[in-house]
Design a protein around this nucleic acid. Structure first.
Lengths: 343, 343
DNA sequence: CTGAAAGCGCTTACAG
DNA sequence: CTGAAAGCGCTTACAG
């Protein structure tokens, strides 16, 4: 029913191969015939079958995207990815990792559809790594986004935020204001970026003279952070004068607990977050934080993946070494930081 | 390089057709040979090529999803869609409508990849409708999600919230509390659900005796609502005692403007929203609103689409009439509603 | 119950 | 510059 190359060939009085070439595949053809064929194709409303092209050329113009959608942050990431892909006529097939142990099925779902590459936003879950290696063995490039993949062997490209530097910048900002007694509310272990942020912050303030820093871990329940860590920190005899929530959401919880206890920010203590979460910009006082450009990071990751795909299909090109691209977050000083009380 | 049916056939000493049948395509085969073939397929790590299967069977096990990702709400919708699809081994190819007039290209991107169906969350943009008709003409089923499609001809299935009833329930709640002077902050025109909510609210309170209701339209800038409407309403001489933000975000802006002016909620006026946006549950006082189950709606839409696809491929089945499935939102009374001041 | 053949709609060498 | 043929990896009638 759909119009095929054969239909065009018949109408134009040429071979099917000629039509294929005229429409863009490799080979030479006289400019006059090409134009005639193009015209007919257009009149007939011809549309290529990307499935067939995929089989023939080994490229489907489609990538696999492995990520969860839990909040507006992921939505932002997706927008960036989409921008990077659509600029080159690529489309994403999306799979969401869940806890059902279906990782392998999901990888297969992508591979069976012959995606040209895979973009993954890793969840802190080591189970994935074996499957990713499988993908690489099939020659399908992978780029990790936002969280680095820790597997030893496969050199998976990475695009993300410079968590270390971001936390450092926040620590320096607070040190300059005169703070010496710090608190950190964080969560997660090694591969998790929140962990890296906490570490960098603690290191930086620790390097300054006469400082203390208490870290507390926030629980996680019903899809939300718990306020236990904030409570613990604000309930201390010698309360920190500056608190770092390794995520804006975490910082926001600190602010709520503070409000419940009648503490004012930044009069009683200063508070900083990480991410510049849009949804929280409405909360007063507006958080001092560090902005990571989710959109830019995601777009870059998509672009890098497409570069890898091209590289693979360009004969004679040497495969470039693994890339690890870090975006520097930007300090946004707003209403929650000030010199320590009594300073 | 990848193992094919032929490889399995050779190793099993049967024909390629026999292998195809053993692996699931139509036809009969002896149970013994089937098992032998299955075993070999597994040992070899055979994986079907869904592109080829798509060409042969006319089904790619893939649907096209047309929606924007702007906030956590869309993320929630996507989770529901994904749940509906993955339960039946379907995967989504995602396209985000933007303002570039690329609608046709995006539809083609989906159709050229031979998606079995299309799920669309319409944006208030009539441009789409012509293209959707094209999709239907190709015999590809479409289901609209969240916002109804208004085109006359094509009967596109719809799954969404009963906005009318939701707004009605909120209005009744406020009337019962004794309110008579109402305000509405809304946005958008006809196809937009916000419009329907505002209308239903105005109708309901209008049907009660001795009531007034003022509506104001919120502007939209830089991806956020403006507070002009909230300002106008709260600045009135005869300020409403109850205000309806047709979205939780809109209601939140009213709350912010109120805070700036030193007005207390619900002492000075009551406030209701629509959606039960998770991100806003942390803001105090917690909003009285109406909960729409984005996840459920989205999952139902996906399931309905898959049903349509099956229906189409089941010979002899009569095509069922258009469905319009409305989910009743649930009233969640929280901290922002009370009897009017002085009552 | 199983095999041999045709075909899905393209691309890609290979001849002319 | 163009045509005829083979092939991508499957499924589906059609014979046996």
């Amino acid at each position: 029913m759909a119009v095929t190359l054969k239909d065009i060939a018949t109408k134009a009085g040429v071979s099917q191969a000629a039509v294929s070439i005229a429409l863009g595949s490799s080979g030479r053809i006289a400019e006059a015939t090409r134009e005639r064929i193009l015209k007919i194709a257009q009149d007939l409303g011809y549309r290529p079958n990307l499935l067939v092209q995929g089989i023939q050329t080994g490229r489907t113009q489609t990538i696999g995207l492995l990520m969860k959608f839990t909040s507006g942050y992921e939505a932002k990431l997706f927008e960036g990815i989409y921008a990077g892909l659509s600029a080159r006529n690529y489309a994403p097939i999306v799979m969401c990792p869940d806890e059902n142990g279906k990782e392998l099925e999901q990888v297969h779902a992508l591979l069976d559809r012959r995606v040209d590459g895979v973009l993954i936003r890793p969840v802190a879950d080591a189970l994935w790594e074996d499957h990713l290696i499988q993908i690489q063995q099939r020659g399908v490039p992978i780029v990790a986004l936002d969280t680095e993949i820790q597997a030893a062997d496969p050199h998976i490209d990475f695009v993300g935020t410079d968590d270390h530097h971001g936390a450092q910048v926040l620590a320096e900002h607070l040190l300059e204001l005169g703070h010496r007694r710090f608190g950190v509310v964080s969560r997660g272990v090694f591969p998790d970026p929140l962990f890296a942020r906490a570490q960098a912050f603690i290191e930086t303030v620790g390097a300054a003279p006469d400082t203390t820093c208490e870290e507390r871990t926030a629980g996680w329940r019903d899809g939300r952070y718990e306020d236990n860590a904030a409570r613990a920190l604000l309930g201390m005899n010698n309360r920190p004068t500056a608190i770092f929530g390794t995520t804006d959401d975490l910082a926001d919880i600190v602010a709520q607990v503070a409000a419940d206890r009648g503490l004012s920010i930044p009069q009683d203590f200063s508070l900083v977050g990480f991410s510049d979460t849009v949804d929280l910009r409405q909360v007063r006082p507006v958080l001092t934080t560090v902005r990571q450009s989710a959109f830019e990071i995601a777009r870059k990751a998509a672009t890098l993946l497409l570069d890898r795909i091209n590289e693979k299909h360009t004969p004679g090109t040497q495969r470039k070494p693994r890339e690890s691209i870090l975006y520097d977050p930007e300090l946004i000083v707003r209403e929650t930081t000030a010199p320590p009380p009594g300073a």
